[in-house]
Design a protein around this nucleic acid. Structure first.
Length: 168
DNA sequence: GTAAGGATTGGC
DNA sequence: CCAATCCTTACT
């Protein structure tokens, strides 16, 4: 069943690991349904997290992260790849989970390409969307934690937070 | 207006 | 190692 609003409105450090094992569903324009088991995610936690885009404050790009959990945050990185994130937490907390990998596809850039993401997904509501949502149950999966990938200018403290979660 | 750089990837 | 490629942010 589709994950509900309450699932996403908890702290990102709770939501991120619980997303592991859940099923990402994308209905393509052709009508084809793509289903992927989420196996790698990263947590970005509010304005204080220097590695989080929201650390720069509420801007045109980051404003959706300040909404309550359950919305999609996508952005173009290096002019080539659309990265998929889910907003979490309560309104004003500015948290998001980066979907870094799913079963059969490694890397957030490649995932965005396969899902055919673009700017029109910015702010998509995961509860209402007929083209992108997440399904799952209450099963718990084992996982490991490690520092986030590609954090270069956030400083040692934020670079070292073990907020990357990978299915064991 | 303009410049710097990025939560990446794949090719050399 | 490094280019691709373009949007976002900040402003020597």
């Amino acid at each position: 069943m589709r994950l509900d609003k309450a699932f996403f409105q908890r702290d990102v450090l709770v939501v991120a690991p619980e997303l592991l094992g859940k099923i990402l569903v994308r209905r393509m324009e052709s009508g084809e349904l793509l289903r992927f088991r989420i196996c790698e995610v990263e947590a970005y936690r509010g304005q204080e997290d220097k590695a989080c885009h929201a650390s720069k404050g509420r801007t045109q790009r980051t404003k959706v992260m300040f909404q309550e959990g359950g919305f999609v945050y996508v952005y173009l990185i290096y002019g080539m790849y659309w990265l998929l994130n889910f907003v979490t937490g309560r309104e004003g907390e500015a948290q998001a989970v980066l979907i870094r990998g799913v079963e059969g596809i490694n890397g957030p850039g490649r995932l965005g390409k396969i899902l055919n993401l673009d700017n029109t997904f910015y702010g998509e509501d995961l509860m209402d969307s007929n083209r992108l949502w997440v399904e799952g149950d209450d099963r718990k999966f084992k996982y490991t934690s490690s520092p986030r990938i590609g954090i270069t200018t956030a400083g040692e403290y934020w670079k070292n937070r073990p907020w990357r979660f990978v299915l064991s």
